[in-house]
Amino acid sequence: MLNLIKRDLLLSFYSSANFFFTVSFFVLILILIPFAFGTQSDQLKLLFKGVVWIALALSIIITVDRIYNADYEDGNLDIIMQKNKTIEYLVISKYVTHWFIYCLPLLVILPILSFLFYLDYFETIQIFINLFIGSFGMVFIANFVSALTLGAKRTIFLKAIIMIPLFVPFIIFGSDAASWPILLGLSMLSFVISIYVTAYGLRLYGE
């Protein structure tokens, strides 16, 4: 399990362009807000709290192709599955690396962005906590969607259609600061479902 985490981190380090693109995609979506809605500080504050969730959802959707697909297509997934007989461990290590590579940078950059949108410290912390909890849930969902659509023709559109309905509860509760316990519950529920479904999908495609 640790091996796999190490290997995935090294792999993403070798092709670091991917990781850079995700961060810049996230930032660019948010930077577009003032161009569309003007620079009134009250409005920007309000919009930022919502659009940051849309940006997170979209950034995760564009990374879903990279979780299992590349390894499945070149055959590395076979070796990985052989070495990890309990596929659930494999899945958990994929959660960890995927979160580290694609969600942590977004969370790191979030405080800088929130100052650009006139948020104060307290609001920034609130958004940060919500985004932190919610990003885990979204990563779980992205993982099982990725595992289920391994054999589908490479269409990001289909994956987006599957994922967006599942992201809706996260986006609804995420934009409200007080509802972090519900977000936590949703993340836990999606963890329980996701770990079984991902392992099921990987086993099916391994056959």
């Binding site: 792999l11 092709s15 590349a70 297509e73 070149d74 055959g75 590395n76 076979d78 070796i79 052989q82």
Partner: peptide, 11 residues
């Protein structure tokens, strides 16, 4: 196991 896919990253 050495399968028909070569398990190499092209890039």
């Amino acid at each position: 196991l050495i399968g028909q896919k070569n398990s190499l990253k092209d890039n």
